[in-house]
Amino acid sequence: MGNILEVENLNIQFRLDEKYYTAVQDVSFSIREGETLGLVGESGCGKSVTSLSIMRLLQPPTQISGQIRYKGKNLLDLPEKQMRSIRGNEISMIFQEPMTSLNPVHRIGTQISESLILHKDLSGKQARQETIRLLQSVGIPRPEQIVDEFPHQLSGGMRQRVMIAIAMACKPQLLIADEPTTALDVTIQAQILDLMRKVARENRTSILLITHDLGVVAEMCDRVAVMYAGRIVEEGPVRQIFRNPQHPYTQGLLASLPKVDGPRTRLQPIEGNVPSLKNMPQGCRFAPRCRRAMDVCRQRDADFHLVEDAHRVRCWLHAE
C-alpha cells in the first residue's frame, strides 16, 4: 500500500504585529491508503493549522514551507485552479461545528449535490438521486424529505451526518476530520465515529483525524502522531503508543485520563500551560513542564529516535 499523503518538513508561520511566529515546525508524517492517522494534541498545538494547510485554506499573511505531497504531487506548488478540483473531490474535510458549517439559507440537498455537480458533472436530477442515496448511506431517516429541508430543521448529530455525506459525496481519497465529534453528545459521538469508519471503509478512504480526545483515537486510528507546541513529539501505531508511551508529554496525556479498570488513583494533570506562539521556550518545548527535563533539553531540541518498529519519539531521554 502506497502513501496517499506525505507531509515533509512542514513549517507554518503566522504574522502577528509585523513579526512572523512559527506555529508549526518541521512536521512530517504520512498516511497510507485506507489508513486512519490520528493527530493529537492540546488546543493551539497546531493540529488544525496543519490540516488547513493540507487543503491550502490558510489565509494570508502566512508563510508555509516544506512539502505536502498528495499522490506524489506537491500541493503547495499547485495552481489554485487545480487545487480547487482536488478540494471536496479527492480530499475533503469535516469541520468541528455541525451547527455552523452548513449554510443556513440553502436546502440540505442543494448543499450536498453542489459538489457532485461541481466535480462530477452530474445533472441536477442525477445529483438529487445521488444525494438521497448519500443521505441514506449516512443513516438519515426520510432522506426524500430531509433533502428539501433547511439546516435549522436538523439536530447537531443529523447535521454532522449531513456534513459527512457532503464530504463523502465525491468518494475522496483522503478525509480530513477536524474534531468531528467534539461538539456532539457522547452517545451521538459514538454513532458518528462508527459512521465515519463505515463510509471510509466502503470507499477505501484514508482519514486524517484531528482530535484532542484520546478515547476517539483509540477507537478510530491505526497510527497516531502526538503534537505539542507545533512539533510532532511522538508517532507510532496506536497500540504501541497507548501501551508504551515514550515521550513524557504522551505519558502525561495518558496519565491524565480516567481508567475504567485498575485501582482508583487521582488523575495526574500535566502542570503548567502550553507556551504561547510569541514566547516559545528554547530547546525542547515541553522542557518547562517536563519532570524529567535535563540540561540538554533546555538547550537543544531532540531529534527523532526509533523506539520500536515505526514508533519514534523526539526526546533526549532516548538518545543513545
Binding site: S85, G88, N103, P104, H119, M163
Partner: peptide
C-alpha cells in the same frame, strides 16, 4: 468568517461562487 464559508471553500468552490452563492443569500 462563518464556518460554512470555510466549509464551502473546502469543497472546491471558487471565489465567485462563494461570494455570490454562499455569502450573498445570507445578507439579502
Amino acid at each position: 468568517e462563518f464556518e460554512y464559508v470555510q466549509a464551502e471553500r473546502a469543497l472546491g468552490a471558487s471565489n465567485t461562487r462563494i461570494m455570490f452563492r454562499v455569502i450573498l443569500p445570507n445578507i439579502i
